[in-house]
């Protein structure tokens, strides 16, 4: 036994799907690379996203996973819910480890997709140095940050990605500072492709992963992934929560190819006429007892982001 490696389960050949032919969920491949036996919480959206990411990536892919809920979701040795190679690595190290792996596979002449699947903490906090280094170096990989806006693995402490006002176990009175703008940090590295996505729009996510993997160089996708125990809403509201994030303009779906911004379908309408922010806030226990001042600040942030991105897309900078 070399390390506690788990033998790869037999992989089934994947049907060749042309990205553009996928117009509805039923066209997404039936092959599963993440089995249903995960140990995720009921209503977990990040594990759902991982399922679609792997469907888009197919079997010639390796996942690099830092410490996060995804470390747990895989299951306990000797069992596993994963049907692609998964390389678990220390919390701060995912992007650097993926750099090494990507170079090694290239040296071997392989075209295997190297995909980091990391939480927000492992991305915006402890992992940001490795992330920045890999993007600056031009590592050929896809870095996906699934953002449940806190440290889920350790029981919901604040992260740099926790929004203003949200209660976590280390911000019991609500977080006093704003969410770190990860996308603008990544954007500053001028990657060939970056996008935002949301678990409530799996087809959009699927297409973005497909497109990202068709491009050479460092790619980035930032997925908003609502989390029932962390955000404190009933498990069956997971899809609704993601949709509300987009409809209120709190979370804007877009792609940026070689710097050029394109707002994605679901967000286009939302940005013209956003649903009231209250709709998104009121169903979440983490925003209970939000003061009117904080709420106002949140609303201003949302409006500001909508304006900034609309102006950019329209070319009025």
């Amino acid at each position: 036994m070399s390390g506690n490696r788990i033998a790869k389960l037999s992989l089934q050949p994947m049907t060749n799907i042309n990205e553009r032919s996928v117009s509805n969920l039923s066209a997404i491949p039936k092959e599963e690379y993440l089995y249903k036996c995960t140990s995720a919480c009921a209503g977990c959206s990040s594990s759902l996203c991982l399922r679609y990411v792997l469907k888009a990536a197919g079997p010639d892919s390796v996942l690099v996973v830092p410490a996060c809920c995804t470390s747990v979701i895989q299951g306990m040795y000797p069992g596993t819910a994963m049907n692609v190679p998964v390389y678990n690595i220390a919390f701060a190290a995912a992007a650097a480890c993926a750099s090494g792996m990507s170079e090694a596979l290239a040296a071997l002449g392989k075209e295997t997709n190297v995909i980091v699947y990391a939480g927000d903490g492992g991305t915006v906090d402890i992992g940001i140095q490795a992330l920045s280094g890999a993007f600056e170096r031009g590592t050929n990989f896809l870095y996906i940050c699934y953002d449940n806006e806190a440290y889920g693995n350790t029981g919901m402490q604040r992260s740099g990605s926790t929004p203003l006002g949200a209660r976590t176990t280390t911000t019991p009175g609500g977080k006093p500072t704003a969410k770190k703008d990860l996308d603008r940090i990544v954007e500053a590295h001028n990657p060939p492709y970056m996008a935002t996505a949301c678990s409530a729009y799996p087809l959009d996510l699927y297409k973005k992963v497909k497109k990202a993997l068709s491009i050479e160089g460092p790619k980035f996708i930032h997925i908003l992934a609502p989390c029932p125990p962390g955000w404190r809403y009933p498990t069956e509201k997971t899809v609704e929560m993601g949709k509300l994030a987009v409809k209120t303009g709190t979370w804007i779906l877009y792609e940026r190819e070689f710097g050029k911004l394109a707002i994605s379908g679901p967000s286009k309408a939302a940005m013209k006429k956003p649903a009231p922010l209250e709709d998104y806030i009121k169903g979440q226990g983490r925003f209970k007892n939000l003061s009117p001042e904080v709420f106002d600040e949140m609303r201003q942030q949302v409006e500001h982001n909508i304006q900034r991105l609309s102006r950019e897309e329209a070319g009025v900078c």
């Binding site: 402890i126 350790t154 176990t169």
Partner: peptide, 18 residues
């Protein structure tokens, strides 16, 4: 910084401070 199984210390201190 939180880490299992220390997290409760950090959380309790955050509560005390809040």
């Amino acid at each position: 910084y939180p880490i299992t199984p220390q997290t409760e210390i950090v959380e309790q201190i955050a509560d005390y401070v809040t």
